[in-house]
Design a protein around this nucleic acid. Structure first.
Lengths: 367, 367
DNA sequence: AAGTAAGATGAAAGCGCTGTCAACAAGCCG
DNA sequence: CGGCTTGTTGACAGCGCTTTCATCTTACTT
């Protein structure tokens, strides 16, 4: 109970100050149109005089409406989630919903904890990055009864609603793009080794296998969080084993940037000696020298749609969207860091060349 | 009240399931040592059976303890806050406190709203980046009675507790460093134009003025959010006016990276033709080619200390720290992107040269 | 063996707010 | 001008939990 802590001003303080009942004071704050202008003004000035801040806890408990949406992402550090969070904020804040972000650090157990913590706050919806929740987390989410959106990736078995794109298909498309440029010795580096980067790698392996190329000599990975420095390091690892590397597909743009710098340091020309292709198309890709080819992922769009669907369900009388699985696709943005292999066959080069002028939208619609 | 929404399992459901009173069930969750092992087990399995998630709202309302710490930062996009947030999470989560982050988007009015929102949730402490809060925000914070830490910058007039470093001094030191290398035509670019970047610029102007150099021809700025692309663009702006630029101090590392790429594009050698110096020392500075000289700011340390002080006050019987203002300083990390001007006087070069081997800790202790 | 301290459990109250419903005033109809 | 609707206000209960505080055991003391 109260503790010795100095008591905060409450609604009834405000009501007393204004000479009305606390119900009226509450209404001035929640539904002002229900209160006569005279009283409304008295209450409003009382609020100002006392610098009253409503206790959201009590309000939420009484009304069963918290006005918040829980968001879980694996990393606050990763530039990938900036656009995504911005979209969530843009849409949700405009609707007077507060976004509460928790960080799972790419650890399933932490994600589970975050789910429980957030659910305990009774958010009106949950938006969670990724599809690899633990069984308990899934169960908690399911029985919470609130809309749950899984993002960043598509799955056949969503908890509730799913918006994303196929990481595997994106990894495949990126590799395919390099193959079409005539490259054969295509490397892949990745860090962190989380589920999403793993599926991107699977796409890479599938494309390589299809092309009949043994990928192993051209792959390097580390469980450490990805950084620019690691990009340089892993490229170094591959080059030490396979100096004949022709192209590199990195699991994300930071690694690509690191690889690019490492090439500069070693005097390896990009793209003449090695083509480099990133993933996510972060802002700097367009501005580096040479500008980095990358796979543009619909980060803002995923956040926006997730938020809009959630909003529709919360505000719109609980109506569910017609489709609970949406594939937003991805696109390859061709820039200067990739080019056709000099000796490549005409057919290959032409096929790839056609993609170099504009970005290609690759989308596998979920039914 | 309840709405038609399916009722969630409550503590008394658990209690009933376990055949105990709800008080006992509560104790099993809060203070298990107070309950006999037999009952404890029964309750615990009931919790598991029903997948019970405590209603934090009700718990917080009843106990006047929310277990959360409010955090306000101006941007989720900016890499600068990653380390800071990580530190807050590291310390606070370990103490079972939840961190709630709100984003003010560098807008004072939004910050004020965020303060009110957060305070309405009754956090046990507030940690807020920057020192430029609105009057109302200050007042709300002050009368909340909880510990409030302002970070990222030092001020003579803290709301409560203040941990940071002098942005102005850092801007000054950076410029001074370039001056000591023998450069005269030192440019400065900045974006966003928030209060902190303004004070860094003030440091730059002070150093330039002291050196008797007119800075105007070498300065470019934009209110847009800073990106790598803008770094390139602003450098271009300066070069269009002042092709004789010798060195560049950027307001942050993203701009520095953009400037570096722009130099590469134009065939300007760094550091031979132009020295480039960033600010913040983000991870990529060490890995770029050439590696970027930057001003290392104690982001993790600020977060860590802020969190630790808050923890001490919350948990440690409300004892306040001896000092409520802590200056953590900054240091200049000299790398390859800066070098002495070829024709510089020996004395100048020697002075600066001594700093090039190791980073220099510059700290102005607050009294 | 009787008395006491320590430990375990539950009943009741209440955290600060909002939903419901009743009470009342004012405005409208015929 | 009485009965009705419409609009405004307040009393009361209760959201789900924790915190006293009283009660009942059990273990220990002398």
């Amino acid at each position: 109970m109260g503790r010795d802590r100095k008591r905060r001003t409450t609604l009834s303080d405000v009501a007393a100050h204004a000479g009305v009942s606390s119900v009226t004071a509450s209404r001035v704050l929640r539904r002002p149109e229900m209160v006569s202008p005279a009283l409304r003004q008295r209450v409003e000035s009382a609020v100002r005089d006392l610098a009253y801040v409503p206790n959201q806890l009590a309000s939420a408990l009484a009304s069963a409406r918290t006005g918040m949406v829980g968001v879980i992402i694996p990393s606050l550090t990763n530039g990938v989630f900036s656009d995504y969070l911005r979209a969530l904020h843009d849409v949700l804040n405009a609707a007077d919903l507060q976004v509460i972000v928790l960080n799972s650090r790419y650890i399933v157990a932490e994600e589970e904890r975050a789910v429980a913590t957030l659910l305990g706050q009774h958010p009106e919806a949950m938006i969670i990055a990724g599809i690899d929740q633990s069984d308990l987390a899934r169960r908690l989410l399911q029985q919470s009864g609130i809309p749950v959106v899984q993002t960043m990736e598509v799955t056949d078995d969503p908890i509730d609603i799913n918006i994303g794109f196929s990481q595997e298909a994106a990894g495949y498309a990126a590799t395919r793009y390099l193959l079409d440029l005539g490259h054969r010795r295509i490397g892949h580096i990745r860090a962190r080794l989380d589920a999403r980067s793993r599926r991107r790698a699977e796409g890479y392996y599938r494309a390589m296998e299809e092309a009949g190329i043994v990928a192993a000599p051209y792959v390097a990975a580390t469980p450490r969080a990805s950084t620019v420095a690691i990009g340089a390091e892993l490229l170094g690892d591959i080059l030490a084993r396979s100096p004949d590397l022709e192209a590199l597909f990195t699991c994300n743009d930071d690694l690509a940037l690191g690889a690019l710098f490492e090439c500069q340091r070693r005097g390896i020309r990009v793209p003449d000696d090695i083509s480099i292709m990133g993933f996510n198309d972060l802002e700097f890709c367009a501005s580096s020298h040479p500008a980095l080819t990358s796979v543009a992922t619909p980060r803002y769009a995923m956040g926006k749609q997730a938020a809009e669907i959630v909003l529709e369900i919360i505000r719109g009388s609980g109506r569910r969207p017609a489709r609970n699985r949406i594939d937003l696709g991805f696109s390859i943005v061709a820039r200067q860091s990739t080019s056709a292999r000099p000796g490549a066959e005409a057919g290959d080069v032409r096929r790839a060349g056609s993609r170099r002028l504009a970005s290609v939208r690759v989308q596998t619609p979920a039914e």
